[in-house]
Computed example of a mutant assay.
Amino acid sequence: MKNNYFIPFYSKYDLTFHSGKGSWLYDDNGNPYLDFISGIAVNTLGHCHPALVETIQKQSNTLINISNYFWNDTVLNLAKRLRDLSNLDQVFFCNSGTEANEAVIKIARKYGTQIAPNKNKILYMKNSFHGRTMGSLSITGQEKYQKNFRPLLENVQEVIFNDLASVREQMNDSVAAIILEPIQGESGVIPATESFIKGIQQLCNQYHALLIFDEVQCGMGRSGKLFAHQYFDVKPDLLSIAKGLGGGFPIGAVIASKRAVNCIEAGDHGSTFGGNPLACACGLTILEQLINKDLLSDVPAKSTYFITKLKRLQETYPMIEEVRGKGLLIGMQMKHSSKEIIRKCMEQKLLLAGSSNETIRILPPLTVSEEEIDLAIDRIETVLTKF
């Protein structure tokens, strides 16, 4: 059994993949699967995109890792690009979204205690997901992930997503920061409302708290904008990104306002592999494809095309309760268990992801074609007819 080699942190399907190209994965028998999981919103350009393959080959012949004691043009160029595109000020590189969120927790705590000794509370959203390390888990609003690992961080408080009154009730001078996902991914692809986001920003301004957006899943073009918070015309103090930034190569980042990080000193945090030239070269290639090659501008049209087709399915198959999302982060909420539908779609060689609230997450690469969307719709309908 393959599982005998691994600590059982994952529940795996009995599929082994050996290669991939674009929106497709190929198993050990050569069977093609339409991959609408994309490494869980990671493979921005699909599998083995020529530009990313060329970047990895070229950069690995020059520099892979040098440590953070020294400068490197690749790292500098990615930091400058992210700073300019986000309209923020400074960047920290790490290896994953969870690591980025660990960094924002520490930044928020130090920021707050520079203002007042007891200004260290962090408010987070019910049903949020920010990671599985002890810090990020402490601000993840899902008991199923937290229950076996207490005690967690102190001075964190859960509030209700899209309910400004619940945030107001907890807001006071002890709050150092509020963290939220502009689109909750793991909890069923639930977008924040504009009034909620604007209200949160006003509260943060009023109480001199940091506004933190976790865009690990919904950022890097996935929503149809480079950063999902750009739908709301607000500016965070801290922005955590990862997943799609490397297109499959591990990289995470925190982008910060000067206000948030003026208190930070050398040694407050770090990451051995964070900001290595190979990862940063991948990040530059992703941005080149999204911005310079204009891939990002295609996402809204693809989203409208896909969501329209899914809503037509909903009209025919009442087991679909709701279709929602932004860009190519799409949720199809079912009235009954989504697990069986996901499994049956896998038998049709279509890969989809699960999430909470009986919602199926649909996460194709941003390079997906209309023909591939049509094929996915056909395979989903084939499954639905059997229910």
Rank of each mutant, 00 (worst) to 15 (best):
I107K: 04
Q59I: 04
K147Q: 13
W71H: 02
H130K: 03
D84F: 03
H130T: 07
A79L: 08
F129H: 06
K58A: 15
M134H: 02
Q146T: 04
N77E: 15
N120G: 12
D84H: 13
S60V: 06
D89R: 01
L52T: 10
Q146D: 07
I122L: 10
D163M: 02
E154T: 07
T62N: 13
I105Y: 08
S67W: 04
W71D: 00
F129Y: 10
K110N: 01
R81Y: 07
T113V: 12
R132I: 03
P151W: 04
S136T: 06
R150P: 00
M134L: 06
M125E: 10
F161H: 07
V53Q: 08
L82A: 07
D163Y: 10
L123D: 11
H130Y: 04
L82F: 06
C94Y: 03
A116T: 06
N68I: 07
M134V: 02
A79K: 10
Q59Y: 02
N155A: 14
R109A: 05
G141F: 04
M134E: 10
V167Y: 05
Q90H: 08
N77M: 14
S96Q: 04
K126M: 06
Q146K: 08
D163H: 11
V75M: 07
E99W: 05
T62L: 15
A165C: 04
C94V: 15
N101G: 14
F161T: 08
F149G: 00
L63G: 01
K80T: 09
K106Y: 05
